[in-house]
Design a protein around this nucleic acid. Sequence first.
DNA 1: AGCACGCCGACT
DNA 2: GTCGGCGTGCTC
Length: 805
Amino acid sequence: MIAKVIVDVAVKQTDRMFDYQIPVKWEGIVEPGMRVIVPFGPRKVQGFVMDVVQESSVKKLKPLVDVLDIAPVLTAELLKLGFWLKDETLCFAISAFQAMLPAAMKARYKKEITLAHQQTLDRLPEEVQKRFQYQERIPWEELEQTDSKLLRQFQQQIKAGALDVIYRVEEKGTKKTKRVIFPNVSNKELSSYIETLDNRALKQRQILSLFLESNQPIIVQDLLEMADTTRSTVKTLVNKGLLKEENVEIYRDPYENKTFAKTEPLSLTTKQETAISPILAAVEENRYETVLLHGVTGSGKTEIYLQSIQKVLNKGKEAIVLVPEISLTPQMVSRFKGRFGSQVAVLHSGLSKGEKYDEWRKIHRKQVKVVVGARSAIFAPFEKLGILIIDEEHESSYKQEENPRYHARDVAIYRGKYHNCPVVLGSATPTLESYARAQKNIYRLIELQSRINDQAMPEVNVIDMREELRSGNRSMFSNSLFEKLSDRLQKKQQSVLFLNRRGYSTFVICRDCGHVVECPHCDISLTYHKNNHQLKCHYCGYQEPMPRVCPSCESEYIRFFGTGTQKVEEELAKVLPEARVIRMDVDTTSRKGSHERLLSQFGEKKADILLGTQMIAKGLDFPDVTLVGVLASDAMLNLPDFRASERTFQLLTQVSGRAGRHELKGEVIIQSYNPEHYSIELASAHNYKDFYKREMHTRKQHGYPPYYFLTLINVSHPDLMKAVSVTEKITSYLKHKLKDHSIVLGPVASAIPRIKDRYRYQCMVKYRNEPNLTGYLREILQHFEKETSQGKLLLSIDRNPHMMM
DNA sequence: AGCACGCCGACT
DNA sequence: GTCGGCGTGCTC
């Protein structure tokens, strides 16, 4: 039997199947979707079995050397999906498969040197002998670090056959095990043995009767505790052959110390009833359908998800729920765990590699029926999917920004069609793409226009910051915001202050000559970090101390500019010294669990003001928050991205949704330098529909999605001229090949023209119908293959880009 | 990606 | 004359 294998070498030349002989002992065991270890050239690599066949056109096949899985880790569906992803995103097959599995399952490769078989040490050079004194195997990296003379000696011995090179493949993830004890004989024998026990053997008797009662394996620690005894007693019984010890694999449960209050389905409002019925119908009829659930913040979308999932579970099927990375807060997790208990696995970036691996294996072993997770959870290896839900459908985190550059929404729809089940996209601010599809009846549109209990939407005031400036207020808080903050402080209500850092970073500028300190390797200004008084580049990590005088004109008036959360915090302390502030940003939430901890502190009312970046925009639901302030609402508007308006609208709507979700009425203050901009005006009026119409109009005018498809080709090279000329070649090739009404733009420098000493150029294609474009793009990759594989030239193609930079 | 093979320049 | 540079091509 022959296995067709995709090997773990992500380059063009090996992006195909290689045939291997399946040794007789594994015939019938090796199946498509399993991981194997195969010899590849002189070394060994991991691979995925794609198919098992009878014949091969290759003459001398090597046998595969190991099988890593008992059951396939990729289902037949996922194998097919992998090739679809490869076609769709122009990535290598191996990259597609690796994206579907937890990182812990990726192979690690080790090269080591050992003494050849039957070789004695004394024949080797002294230096070499020394190295083998304390270890049988010497890691290759260790040798590479030593002097070249020794390295050469080793190489000679390898050539002479006295030393062997061995290639090992290891799994990154480790399985955690625990020792359990269980009876080695029948219950009958056990009880009869108890009779014969000496009267002094109290503990032994106790232990054995515990097993008679429970009839199942007991973890050693638990057993010791239950019988209040020590290892030696247990050992005695094991030695007598009555009990047996064994290691069993256990799962790390990231939520093991938390209890989730069991929740019962809430009774739905009439509006929710109407909204859920088409979803339930699709579940019932095993019918694929994509439903766009457009519900304002606080309209009760989650309860709709929960009850739809309940229906799916009742049918014996499984569910995947995607939530944006950032909102995988305990609040969201506990709603799912509370309703479905141990049937839920959670997959998000807050977990360690090992924890993710364990959660994934729960899915693989069908021990759970519901997965709640970030983007990659869309690949959960379920085989009886009954529903796929993407909450906050518009979130940019659903698009992967590295190969394979997929969008979770597309994968969800692929899987929904495969499993004949509904896909639900939920959002208060759907992407224009999705809403347009709903308008064209490609998706079914379900709208929830009002909040639960008809709670009013918060009142939104837009403050013109130019006016403030004119009237002499140069602080970052408008008078109105300041007054409201003090008011809440007095009433002992809470406020949330939102600072959008993207676009407004704390760059350093000289007030005399206007010189801005930039990164020497990237064309971007450095950001000031207060804690260590350093200037840092966000793209390459370069750091330098904050200069005391301007590097250009030596003026002393060099200051940092812009508003970081740290700066806001300081200002707050000046104007509202009595306010207790919790600051949430990358700096304060980098440690594991700190995100969660800060939020719960705020929830316990240990602070009056929550100040933060993007990460506090979504999903938070605190009853005493009655004021939300957005400090710089238009920071994003000026980014070089055709979605800037859409992002601003989404963000403002999301942020406003944080206020007044319960009995207390909410109020929102939006500070802006562009108050008349339609994103800001319409967001403050809670008017999605008009925003949609308005924005669709601009998209049509400028030839952007949803009217046009987009493909972005990024070229980067250390040599500026080379970067330009390659982009130029690509651009003219595409112009030549594509239809006249398709638009090929370029070569243009990227928004950040240089990162890590590489010049960056791009070519953008706008088109409506180009069935052969994928082929042309493949041609381009092929044409530059040699140059890209040498590492100097970097080409990346993004079909449906979300980041234009 | 690794690794071997092979062809040119500067060294014991 | 050999060592070692890295361009080229292959991996079932």
